[in-house]
Amino acid sequence: MYTTINEEGILNNYATEPQTYYAVYPSTEQQSRYAFQGAVATLLVTALVLFASGIS
């Protein structure tokens, strides 16, 4: 941790910054998994909305 002291004696603590990196494009397997998760989430939300509207 990096610490400085100003003229009034107040400490300023700075967190260490993490090392940055570039994101990599997802593979075709990951893309299909994301599409499947999106479809399941869409079906779940649609079912919940229909169920809630059916009850009320």
Rank of each mutant, 00 (worst) to 15 (best):
V49P: 00
Y34H: 09
F51T: 11
G54K: 04
N12L: 08
V45H: 01
L44Y: 10
N13A: 00
G9E: 08
Y22D: 13
T4W: 07
L43F: 14
L43N: 05
T20K: 05
T3N: 03
G54M: 06
A47V: 15
Q19K: 13
A47C: 15
V49W: 03
E7M: 05
E29A: 15
T46Y: 11
A47G: 15
S32P: 00
A41N: 12
Y21R: 14
Q37E: 12
G38D: 07
A15N: 07
T28L: 13
A39T: 12
T46R: 05
A39H: 09
P18M: 02
E7L: 04
F36Y: 09
L11P: 00
Y34F: 14
Q37G: 03
T20M: 03
I10C: 00
G9M: 10
S27W: 01
T4D: 10
A52Y: 11
S56T: 09
G38T: 08
S27C: 00
Y21A: 15
G54W: 10
Y14H: 01
P18F: 03
I5E: 11
A15M: 07
Y25E: 15
S32I: 03
Q30D: 09
V45I: 15
A35M: 06
L44A: 15
S56D: 08
L44T: 15
E7Y: 02
N13Q: 07
N13K: 04
L44D: 09
P26G: 02
E8T: 11
A15G: 07
R33M: 11
G54D: 01
Q19N: 12
E17R: 12
Y2V: 10
I55L: 08
T4K: 06
A39C: 10
Q37I: 06
T16M: 11
I10W: 01
E29N: 10
A15S: 12
Y25F: 14
T28Y: 13
V40P: 00
Y25M: 14
T4E: 14
L43K: 09
N6Q: 05
S53D: 02
Y25L: 14
A52T: 13
V40I: 12
S32T: 09
L11Y: 12
L44K: 11
S53W: 06
N13M: 04
T46P: 01
Q31L: 09
L44C: 13
Y21P: 00
T16N: 13
S32R: 11
Q19E: 15
A47M: 15
Q37M: 14
V24M: 13
G9Q: 05
L44R: 07
Q30Y: 07
L43T: 13
S32A: 05
N13D: 01
S32V: 06
I5N: 00
P18S: 01
